[in-house]
Design a protein around this nucleic acid. Sequence first.
DNA 1: TAGATTGTTAATCGATTAACAATC
DNA 2: TAGATTGTTAATCGATTAACAATC
Lengths: 213, 213
Amino acid sequence: MRPLKIPKPTVKRLAIYYRCLTKLKETGIDRTSSKEMADALGIKASQVRKDLSYFGEFGKRGVGYDVDKLSYKLKEILGLKKNWNVAIIGSGNLGYAIANYSGLEKNGFKVVAAFDIDEKKIGRMIIPGVTINKFSEMSSIINENSIEIAILTVPAHESQNVADALVKSGIKGILNFTPSSLSVPENISVEDVDFVISLKSLTFEIASFNDNE
Amino acid sequence: MRPLKIPKPTVKRLAIYYRCLTKLKETGIDRTSSKEMADALGIKASQVRKDLSYFGEFGKRGVGYDVDKLSYKLKEILGLKKNWNVAIIGSGNLGYAIANYSGLEKNGFKVVAAFDIDEKKIGRMIIPGVTINKFSEMSSIINENSIEIAILTVPAHESQNVADALVKSGIKGILNFTPSSLSVPENISVEDVDFVISLKSLTFEIASFNDNE
DNA sequence: TAGATTGTTAATCGATTAACAATC
DNA sequence: TAGATTGTTAATCGATTAACAATC
């Protein structure tokens, strides 16, 4: 049982701290401070401490944080102590790129299945050892392989239907690359990755800069 | 000259409203209301009106909004009246997938150049008509083609170097798919798209659900 | 006119930051 | 011990929401 409702931005930052600590570890540094991490990330030291304080006391006053220990704690908090089986839903260019992104495996995410409607793609390998399946087999394959996370890269007009099927298949979370805002039961988690919206934030900013001088 | 500092979340939502209006237009609907849009997006009507109010008065009291007119206004606000030339920096799987994503052209973004270090890729086409170039040609090609936006999909350890080169080449904004937080001059805009962080937010949520019952 | 919906103000809510006692 | 840095409280800042007069 977690004590409090954790702010969404805090969760994102915890993942960023974890990445930061991993880098420190690789550099051979074994002690750090909220200030050091904050400076590396361009935020305030009190923000770092506040974020961590939701989950416990991980540092030593006057000393700082043990990199290994804090890193392990964050790994635990973020649910990364186990490996996660993921499925790629929609094996187009984007699905292919994500499935083959080395960062997935490095972070404990294992692509164990992929799906597509395109008959021509069925049977091909999306990554070595993982063949692309028909949507009709989705439910059974998700169950058999205890897949909890779906990475959704289907065309926008199919996204809600596919999401419904995923929920029925017992998936627990969806990383949604489609532009649709999905309706799912409240016990299912969805994270949206919407780079066209990000691109338009960018043009807004660029256009604003030019307007303002 | 814009009157106020616009909240970041507001800008993102403006882009979402614009997408919503585009969909309404396609459906043949020509009038809407803050409530209708809000319900479609799962937010509050007052949020929609507040967001729009930063930029002017676009509706009619008692009536609502003209879809065409509001859509055009948002297009203008977001800087989308012109087409943007973009370059793909790093022509791996992800760069390839993004370059070939139909949503780019549909939204007024034109991929006019691509780059990579890998000698084997130089000269190949990333999309029909656009060949992959060496990094050494980046500066001149960006200038000659008046490219203002770079989509950065290089490996993490090269990202800052490449970003520096992009800034020197006169780029105005970077859509950053790498996990590095880039240092750029304050007149350069950066938007981060970090799906591994999103994936870890997802595992946090899933793990929390299971812990809490 | 009566009903509907805007634009805007004021209230609320939530997240960030500063400050500092605790303590290594 | 003196200096450093935590964990936490309180203050500040910013964003969301409710409420309502204006008005179509």
